[in-house]
């Protein structure tokens, strides 16, 4: 009994110190000068631009992750080919490498001094210190989520249902939409939730390529940092509270989905 109480107490205390109190502090700080200051900080032109850019990056990175994830999971689960395990390892690379390195790689490739720099200058497309670079960085750090959900799921489910559908005369497209997608839809959704959370919250990789141009290349996490460095704590925490909200929403959606999938089987 004693041990049980101790263990539970320790866990709760740890979570309290490292999670609940900081989260509460964010909200307390955000509302320190009242709701008026809070909403003013969110309606600031630069804040709105940062929110817009974050949503744009997410709106591009998530579909990219879904398309890549389904294709990669299909290839890995359904076919045998040389280098398969290497491919699966590489899918995990964005998790293993520091996001700062990912950002630096983009600068090395697309920067003025980079490998593709002359091409960039000639074509007039700016990648680094511009929106395309931010989008690329976001895609890099968030693309594995759907693939990592789907690979084990599709390996476990096998492809007998697809074979059955083919024998019943279904075309490849019909098999994909009527059999495969319904089989993996919860896996895709789960991946999308995690991928969105990561895409919206990413700081390191984006920070390297962004250049922090206010109102232009600032995402929500970068905007929070700038406000904080300017000692504008109320605004910084107000915008940060959006990220907290996203995190809580992600957790809620994740739990709801897990509950739904468990109750379906």
């Amino acid at each position: 009994m004693m041990k049980k109480a101790l263990l539970i107490g320790f866990t709760v205390l740890f979570l309290g110190v490292f999670l609940v109190i900081p989260l509460g502090a964010v909200l307390a700080e955000a509302f320190r000068k009242g709701a008026g200051a809070y909403f003013a900080a969110l309606q600031d032109r630069e804040a709105l631009s940062a929110i817009g850019l974050t949503l744009l990056c997410t709106a591009i990175a998530v579909p990219a992750s879904v398309i890549f994830g389904v294709a990669a999971a299909w290839a890995v689960a359904r076919f045998r080919f040389p280098g398969k395990s290497l491919l699966v390892t590489f899918i995990d690379l964005p998790f293993a490498v520091s996001p700062v390195v990912a950002g630096l790689v983009l600068v090395l490739l697309f920067g003025m001094q980079g490998a593709l720099g002359p091409l960039m200058i000639k074509s007039g497309i700016r990648v680094v210190f511009a929106i395309p670079g931010i989008i690329l960085a976001t895609i890099f750090v968030s693309f594995p989520f759907v693939a990592r959900e789907l690979i084990p799921l599709m390996q476990e489910q096998g492809d007998e249902e697809e074979q059955a559908a083919m024998l019943l005369g279904a075309s490849g497209w019909q098999i994909f939409w009527r059999v495969t997608v319904p089989k993996i839809r919860w896996g895709i959704l789960y991946g999308v939730i995690l991928c969105s959370a990561r895409a919206m919250g990413e700081f390191g990789a984006v920070s390297v390529v962004s250049g922090h141009i206010r109102g232009k290349t600032n995402t929500v996490p970068l905007h929070v940092e700038i406000l904080y460095n300017e000692y504008n704590f109320v605004a910084a925490f107000a915008v940060a509270s959006l990220l907290v909200l996203v995190a809580l929403g992600t957790l809620a959606a994740k739990s709801a989905l897990e509950w739904k999938v468990r109750n379906e089987h």
Partner: peptide, 21 residues
Amino acid sequence: LSAKDRGVGFVFQHYALFRHM
């Protein structure tokens, strides 16, 4: 000819029913 066009009725050991239908 592809399996799709052979007009064969096939029954699998583990049924392979469409679980969501």
